[in-house]
C-alpha cells in the first residue's frame, strides 16, 4: 500500500507537485494521467526517493519512506522508465539479474530467477540471454526493462510511460501481457501514461493530475461518466468518451443466448469489446452479430439495441 499525504515538491520557484493526497491499495493498478509537466514523473520518483519531497508524507505499508535507507528502499521497488535505461555494456541476463545480485542472492538462484523472468516475458533464454541491449528491438528492450524491475519480486512497481516509445501493436501486446501478469502477481503498481486508451484499459483507478494537483480520481467508467470538470472531460476524450467506454466492455457481458432466429452472418468473439462490435456492425451495415467463443463456435448473439441499451439498465 502506498499513501501520499499532502505531498509537495518545489523546484526553485516552481511547484511541481502541490499537496497531493493519494492512497493506492495493495494489488491495485493506479494510473496517473495529465498534461505534460503536471508532475506525474515527479510524484512517481518521490515514492522511491529519486526525488525527495519537500512537504507532506509518503508511506509504504504505513511506514514513512524517509524511515528507510534509500538504497534498501529502491531495491524493494521495481522501476521501469520509457527509455528503459538498460546498461549497454551488460547482457540481457545480467541486466535482469541486477537487483538480485545487489541483494547478494546466491549465483544459482539469480540465474534461475533470470530465466524464469525471461520466460514470463516471452524472451526465449537461448536466444536473448547473451544479447546486448543494442541488439534488441524497442519492444524487446522494454520487456527486459520490465523483467529487471520484477527480478527481486518487489511488491511495488513504478512505471513511467513504459510503453510510450513503442508502436501501437507492440504497445497493445505489452499492455495485454501486463494485465495478465498483474492478474497473476497482484503487485501494487503506479503507472504513468499519456495514452488515454492505455490508461483506461489498465487502470483499476485513474488519477487525473493538472498543474501539480489531483483534479479527480476514480474507476475508469466512473470518470468517463462523471468528469469533475471540462478539463477531465476533454482529457478523457470529449465526444469520444462513448467509444472509450465501449472499449472497456466485453461483448460477452452484453450478448444474449442464441435465440430461435437464424444466425447472423457476421461474427464477433465474445472477448472482443463493444467498440469493436460496433465497428463491425458499421462496417458490414448490420445490426446483429453472432457471438463466438475461442473455437469459433456460436454461443450467443448481440443486437445493436442490446449493445446500446446497457447504459440505461
Amino acid at each position: 500500500m502506498i499513501e501520499l499525504f499532502d505531498v509537495t515538491k518545489r523546484f526553485g520557484d516552481e511547484t511541481a507537485v502541490d499537496g497531493i493526497t493519494l492512497r493506492i491499495e495493495k494489488g491495485e493498478l493506479c494510473v496517473l494521467v495529465g498534461t505534460s509537466g503536471c508532475g506525474k514523473s515527479t510524484t512517481l520518483r518521490m515514492v522511491n526517493r529519486l526525488i525527495e519531497h519537500d512537504g507532506g508524507e509518503i508511506h509504504l505499508d504505513g511506514q514513512p519512506v524517509r524511515s528507510f535507507d534509500e538504497v534498501t528502499l529502491r531495491r524493494r521497488i521495481g522501476y521501469v522508465i520509457q527509455s528503459t535505461g538498460l546498461f549497454p555494456h551488460w547482457t540481457v541476463a545480467r541486466n535482469i539479474g541486477l537487483v538480485p545480485r545487489l541483494l547478494k542472492w546466491p549465483r544459482a538462484r539469480v540465474r534461475e530467477r533470470v530465466e524464469e523472468l525471461m520466460r514470463l516475458l516471452g524472451l526465449p533464454v537461448a536466444e536473448f540471454a547473451d544479447k546486448y541491449p543494442r541488439q534488441l528491438s524497442g519492444g524487446q528492450a522494454q520487456r527486459v526493462g520490465v523483467a529487471r524491475a520484477l527480478a527481486a519480486d518487489p511488491d511495488i512497481l513504478l512505471m513511467d510511460e513504459p510503453f510510450g516509445a513503442l508502436d501501437p501493436i507492440t504497445r497493445e501486446t505489452l499492455q495485454h501481457e501486463l494485465r495478465e501478469l498483474q492478474a497473476r502477481l497482484h503487485k501494487t503498481i503506479v503507472f504513468v501514461t499519456h495514452d488515454m486508451d492505455e490508461a483506461l484499459s489498465l487502470a483499476d483507478r485513474l488519477v487525473v493530475m493538472h498543474q501539480g494537483r489531483i483534479v479527480q480520481q476514480g474507476g475508469p467508467i466512473e470518470l468517463l461518466h462523471d468528469p469533475a470538470n471540462a478539463f477531465v472531460e476533454s482529457l478523457l476524450g470529449g465526444m469520444d468518451r462513448g467509444l472509450k467506454e465501449a472499449a472497456l466492455i466485453k461483448v460477452g457481458e452484453r450478448m444474449l443466448p442464441l435465440g430461435p432466429r437464424l444466425l447472423a452472418s457476421e461474427r464477433i468473439a465474445y472477448g472482443a469489446s463493444l467498440s469493436q462490435a460496433l465497428s463491425v456492425m458499421l462496417w458490414h451495415q448490420v445490426d446483429r452479430l453472432t457471438v463466438v467463443d475461442e473455437e469459433d463456435i456460436p454461443i450467443g448473439e448481440l443486437s445493436l439495441r442490446r449493445l446500446l441499451g446497457a447504459r440505461a439498465s
Partner: peptide, 13 residues
C-alpha cells in the same frame, strides 16, 4: 545517458 544513471540509482545501486 541520463536514463542509465536514472535506472542505476532507481534499481538501488
Amino acid at each position: 545517458p541520463a536514463e542509465v544513471h536514472e535506472a542505476a540509482r532507481g534499481m538501488g545501486m
